[in-house]
Every structure is written in structure tokens, then in C-alpha cells.
């Protein structure tokens, strides 16, 4: 409990302070209340709109999950190939970095034109934005493995696959999870952005609708929902991370 207080209390206090400041600012009249609704007003949206927000959230989550799965699979494949073949790494890595200079909002309309208004362009966009942190994280992880560990495994007669499985994969897990934590946040944002540009359901579509109605309180409500979803997903990644690397928590206990 003491550790919990030490680790999380400052952050909780800071968030509460921001909310209080916002409430004061919004109710003081310094900013017109229709432009900046108070946190209390935003929360008041949920009883009426909760059901609708929930159904839109499910659509966005589905797109994000499918895209993330594709991005992780693709990133994994690229990282393995780049790690195994030096020449591929030299060829592809600069391309990957270059691809990150293209803004997402610039590709999204193209994808809509190419792939239509259904779920496909959204999933593709999410895959594109999540692929990079996964590929780069995993590659760094693979390359951070001590070459002596690989030599020792080889001296013991290990095959390439066994080296990969026993040394490279576990060695790359920390970097993979750092990449994944970024990727889940990208996934939700990517799905929302692609929904802005055309679609029938999802939080992005809801957002453009309430924007056209100048319903500021609902716009803020959907922002709350999006950040809550991202936060939950990142917590989930942290949980899976701890479960998949029990040796790390053992080390912390010792210290």
C-alpha cells in the first residue's frame, strides 16, 4: 500500500488537479461554457449517450485490434528477416524510417479511395502505423542479444531455430513490449482518424457528427472515451508484459 502510494499518488494528484483547474476555469466564465464545458458537464453526457458511445467504441476497437494484429505480424516478420540477413536490414531499414515521415492523415484519404468506406481501409491504416514501432523494437531487441550467448549456444550444437527460440525471442521481449505499448495507442488513434475520413460507425464517425452539431460536451466525452480506451489497452499490455517475463519481477523483488 505504501509502495502504491509512493508510485502512483503523485500522478493521481496531478490528474485531479488538472480536472479541478478545468472545472474552475469552465464555471468562472473566463471561457464561454459552450466552448469549454466543465468536466462535470462532460460526465453528464454519459447516462444519455453511454449506450451509443459503447457501440461505436466496439467498432473502433475491432478495427484497432485487427489492424494491430496485422501490424504485429508484419513487424515481427520484418524484424526477423532484417535480423537474419544483414543486407536486408541495410536495404529496408532506411525505407522504414522514411515511411514514418509520411503523415498518417495524408495516407488515410488515399486508402479510403482505394479500399472503400468499410472496415478494410481502417484496418490497413492501423496496421501501417503499428507496424513500425513493433518492427523497430523487435529488431533492436534481437540485436541487443549478447553475441557470446549465441556463440555459446552454437558451441553446444544449437540450430539457428533453437538460438532464435531460446536466446533471441526472450532477449527481445522487453523491447517488443515497449514497442507494443506505443503501438496500441497508435492503433486507437489510427482507427479514429481513418473513421473521420469516411465510414458508417465508430468513435471517429460519432466525433464528426457531434462536431457538426457543435455539441462540445459530446466531443469532450468522446475524447474521454478514446483516452480511457488507450489507457486500458496500455495497462493490459503492461499486465501481459509482466506475465510473460516473470524473471524480471523476480529481479525486482530481490532488489
Amino acid at each position: 500500500m505504501k509502495r502504491f502510494a509512493k508510485n502512483y499518488l503523485p500522478a493521481i494528484v496531478a490528474v485531479l488537479a488538472v480536472l479541478v483547474l478545468w472545472q474552475v476555469l469552465a464555471t468562472s466564465g473566463a471561457v464561454p461554457s459552450y466552448m469549454l464545458p466543465s468536466p462535470a458537464k462532460v460526465l453528464a453526457v454519459f447516462p444519455a449517450e453511454g449506450q451509443l458511445l459503447w457501440s461505436h467504441s466496439l467498432v473502433t476497437l475491432e478495427e484497432a485490434a485487427l489492424g494491430l494484429a496485422a501490424g504485429v505480424a508484419l513487424g515481427f516478420a520484418f524484424a526477423v528477416l532484417m535480423d537474419a540477413f544483414d543486407v536486408l536490414r541495410r536495404a529496408i531499414y532506411p525505407l522504414l524510417v522514411l515511411s514514418q515521415t509520411v503523415p498518417v492523415v495524408a495516407i488515410a484519404p488515399l486508402l479510403v479511395l482505394w479500399l472503400g468506406y468499410d472496415i478494410t481501409p481502417k484496418v490497413v491504416l492501423v496496421a501501417l502505423v503499428t507496424f513500425f514501432p513493433i518492427a523497430v523494437g523487435l529488431l533492436q531487441g534481437f540485436q541487443s542479444v549478447d553475441p557470446d550467448e549465441v556463440n555459446l549456444m552454437r558451441a553446444m550444437g544449437a540450430s539457428r531455430w533453437q538460438v532464435f527460440r531460446f536466446v533471441k525471442i526472450p532477449g527481445a521481449l522487453p523491447e517488443f513490449f515497449s514497442g507494443l505499448r506505443i503501438a496500441v495507442a497508435y492503433a486507437v488513434v489510427g482507427a479514429v482518424i481513418s473513421e473521420w475520413l469516411g465510414g458508417f460507425n465508430g468513435l471517429g464517425v460519432y466525433m464528426t457528427r457531434v462536431q457538426k452539431a457543435f455539441a462540445f460536451d459530446r466531443m469532450f466525452a468522446v475524447i474521454f472515451v478514446i483516452s480511457a480506451i488507450s489507457l486500458l489497452l496500455m495497462l493490459l499490455v503492461g499486465l501481459v508484459e509482466r506475465k510473460s517475463m516473470p524473471w524480471r519481477s523476480a529481479r525486482q523483488e530481490k532488489e
Binding site: L152, G157, F166, M245
Partner: peptide
Amino acid sequence: YMMQKDLLLESMRVADNVGLPLRL
């Protein structure tokens, strides 16, 4: 072959580290 560094795999428990050559 044992090198200067022990090169135990951090991701495996002691028994699995020691038994690794057999798994290979």
C-alpha cells in the same frame, strides 16, 4: 565450452538453464 561470463539465460529458471544442452 564455458566462457568468462556465465551466460546463463535470464529467461530460464536454474534447472532449465542447466538442462538446456539436453533440450538442444
